[in-house]
């Protein structure tokens, strides 16, 4: 399968990538790891006329410790995140989630920024980004801005990014107690249900992916939790649960309650 014709430009800086995005508007797509975009282009589900490859922009590749936070560049691959000493030490649940994505080959190419910008409703990272209360740093023609994780995900393949903006990095507060639990779609290894929990005593933050058209904070669970995992019964309160041929909505809701419970008990 061969995609429609397109022009390819390898951007050498964030400024250049933004300038190109601004110039070409919705005709352009950003290419990072390409492991969602290229198959979609082959299937002609997506037909950009220009691809802006940001994978060579070195400034998007770093993982650094900044006080109480870990900053992860948008271009960091799942493998780099899973293997990072800083991530393993301060964001164990993110390293674990990265290791559950796809397979070795996909983890060698796919990136954190690419996954968040793509916003597949069954992607793993969004649950972790929400539970960690991370901040997504974006840059566009009007400068830089910080978007809270809770404001970033708006629906299936839809985020708060404007047409001329790209993600540059994600700021994660360090986590002392957290975990990620996942029910795999057995062929693709996407999350049928993925649950990230960050705990601070009886205060919990619960991020859920795979269940609805957008990942969400299970606030009903967070409010009900007083140290007892029965709060998991509220996992889908107020949520419109997805239904597909992998899991209908009743089964998915059940899985969400089970996996929230496991994450609270872990």
């Amino acid at each position: 399968m061969i995609p429609s014709k397109f022009d390819y430009i390898k951007a050498s800086s964030v400024d250049q990538a933004i300038e190109l995005l601004d110039q070409h508007g919705w005709e352009a797509k950003i290419l990072a790891g390409g492991h969602s975009l290229i198959p979609a282009m082959k299937l002609r589900l997506n037909n950009p006329s220009i691809l802006i490859d940001i994978s060579g922009i070195g400034e998007l590749n770093s993982i650094t410790e900044q006080g109480d936070e870990i900053h992860i560049g948008a271009n960091c691959t799942h493998k780099a995140i899973a293997n990072s000493d800083l991530v393993q030490k301060h964001l164990g649940l993110l390293a674990d989630a990265a290791n559950t994505i796809g397979d070795i080959q996909i983890r060698n190419r796919g990136t954190l920024g690419g996954s968040l910008a793509h916003a597949d409703p069954s992607a793993d990272y969004p649950a972790v980004v929400l539970a960690c209360d991370a901040t997504i740093e974006v840059q566009g023609k009007n400068g830089v801005r910080s978007v809270a994780a809770t404001d970033f995900f708006q629906g299936t393949f839809t985020t708060a990014l404007e047409g001329d903006e790209i993600i540059t990095s994600i700021r994660f507060p360090k986590v002392s107690q957290g975990n990620y639990q996942k029910f795999y779609q057995s062929a693709s290894r996407f999350a049928v249900v993925g649950v990230a929990v960050v705990k601070d005593g009886n205060d919990v933050r619960v991020g859920v992916t795979g269940v609805s058209d957008a990942p969400y904070r299970a606030t009903a669970v967070e409010e009900a939790y007083t140290g007892n995992a029965d709060a998991a019964e509220h996992a889908v309160d107020g949520v419109e649960v997805m239904s597909d041929h992998f899991a209908d909505s009743d089964y998915r809701a059940h899985l969400a309650r089970v996996f929230v419970r496991r994450a609270l008990e872990a």
């Binding site: 390819y8 390898k10 390409g34 691809l51 490859d53 994978s55 080959q105 996909i106």
Partner: peptide
Amino acid sequence: AVKSCTVLAVQ
């Protein structure tokens, strides 16, 4: 290790 069907030759 990467899947070469999902990498453009130009990449």
